[in-house]
Every structure is written in C-alpha cells, then in structure tokens.
Amino acid sequence: MMDSTYKFIIQVKAMGKKRKSALNLLKLNNVTLIIVLIVVVAIFSVLNHNYFSRSNAMNILYASSVVGLLAIGQTYLIIGGYIDLSCASIASLSGVLAAICIGKGIPWLSALLITLILGAAIGIFNSILTNIFSLQPFIATLATASMCEGFGYIICGGRSVPISNQSFIAIGATKIFGIPLPVIYLVILFIIFGFILEKTVFGRSVYIIGGNPTAGYLSGINPKKVSTILYVISGIVSAFAGTTLAARMHTGAASAVLGSEFNAITAAVLGGVSFTGGSGSIGGCFIGLIIIQSFSNGLTMINVSSFWQKVAQGMLLIGALLLDDFRRKKLTK
C-alpha cells in the first residue's frame, strides 16, 4: 500500500514538472506560430496592398467564425485524449432545427435554446458511447455524425429552410462598431475557454486525463466525468456555430457545415495541440486558425488558381508541422 502511494506521489510530482515544461513549450510554440502568421501577412500585403486592411481582416475573422467555434471543442477534446467527428454534423443539424423552429413560430430565443439543448444532448450521447459502451471516440463520434447528418436531411426533407425572422437573423448578421457578431462570439468564446483551460482546476484536469489518465484517476479525477463535460461543451459550441451560420445566411441547410470538423482539427493541430493528448492551448489553436484563413484569403486575393491553393494549403500545414517538430527536437536536446 505504502509502495503504491509512494509511486503515485512520484508520478504526480513528475506530472507537475512535465506540466511546467509543457507550458514553456507551448509558449514557445505560440511564438513560432505568431512568426509564421506575421510572415504570411507580410508576404500577402506586399503582393496585394488591400490585404492588410480592416475590411479584409474582418473577412478573415468572419471566415474563421464557424470553424473556430468547432475548433474550441476539438481542442479541449484532443487535449483530453478524445475527439469529436460529429461536431460539424451537430452544427448543420442545429442550423436546420433552428430554422424549422423559427418557421413554426417559436420565439428565436427559445429556438436558440432548443438547439443548444440538442447540442448538449448529442454531447451526452457521445459520452455514453465512449464511456459506458467503451467505443473508440473516433468511430463512435463518426457514427453520431452520420446520424446527425441523416436527421438533418430528414427534418428538412433535404431542402434548405429559409429564415425571415429578423431578430434571429440579427444574431448572425448584426455588426457592433463594424465588427460582425459572429466574430465577437468567436473572440469572446476563445477568451473564456482559454481562461478555463489554463487557469482552472477543470482545465488542469483536462490536461491530466489527456497526458496520463492513470495518474489523473489516482489523483481523484474522474476521466469519464471530465470527458462528458468535454463532449457537452463541444456539442453546445457546435450547435451555437451552426445556429449563427444559419442566421448569417438567412437559411438552415442540412449540408451547411459538413466537412468542417477536419478544418477544426487542422486548426487545433497546427496550433500545437498534440494528437496524443495532454498538451496544446486554445491560444495556439486560435493562431493556427487565423494562419489557415489568412493564407487561404491571401491566395484568393492574388488570384491563385483553386487547385494550386489546395497544394499550397497542404504545403503550409506540412511546413508548420515540420517547424514545430524541429523546435521540439531542439528543445529536447
């Protein structure tokens, strides 16, 4: 008994050290990413003088708003050692559901609430699949994605559902001091979830269950409880993303966000979130997201053919990952 307690104490201490060094690494990682972002912005600003403008910055942030919200949930889950491939399908389903609710005369706030509850419920469903039935998160959430996608098409009969309620449209289209609301949501939610992850006990428990679940369990953390919260967060944020997109486009479409889960995962990984869990940050994810969008936006601005854009985007990702790998190896030495 004493022996196991002793081992546990050593493990916890090691976790503490690892955590500190991991934080330093992450800080450095963000610096690297910021440098990459500055280089991207500088190059495109030279190639097109309108690139470095307020309106284009808004374009980049606007384009990031949906994927960014999905990326928040993904970052949490990947750090915790999980993944959610259903987030985009939840978003699409929520957008359609909101449009249908609005069409049926339900007040917009209630419609929004219904979609958020739906998101939470699907999050719990994902958690049940992974925690109670012990299914692999990748496969379980893929199955959920398929179900949500199917339900999305079923409830709207495959047709887009127009939205004419101006109050609801306002949640996606209103601008405050020229800044679109979805951009404000994005920034606020990144700040809130960044704070939770870095500064709270819950945030630390996410790192611990992703880095060393056994140690986490021994230190009193219930990985199932934490992962349930993570899936619920992912579900709610995804539902919110889908609903705001529906408001922005004045229409709910069952295919609206499909495929975006991979962009969200890409943003998280580019931002330094480790696929093996236990490390990464919301800040890094945000910078990764902005790098991807700035790059895509810049290529369009300078009229690069779409096929070359795909090649260039792949190269950017590989380049950033290699740079990150190089930096990690250097630090290890």
Binding site: N48, N50, Y51, S53, S55, N56, N59, Y62, A63, V66, V67, L245, M249, T251, A253, S255, A256, V257, L258, G259, S260, F262, N263, S296, N297, T300, M301
Partner: peptide, 18 residues
C-alpha cells in the same frame, strides 16, 4: 473547404476587399 454558400461568401468578400 467551407460549405457552398459560406465558401462563396468568403471568396466574393475577398475579391471585394482586394
């Protein structure tokens, strides 16, 4: 890689800004 309408939004607004 965004959905059709959103992708069109992104592309068109970028051309406007440029």
């Amino acid at each position: 890689s965004a959905e059709l309408s959103e992708a069109a939004y992104n592309q068109v607004s970028t051309i406007f800004s440029a």
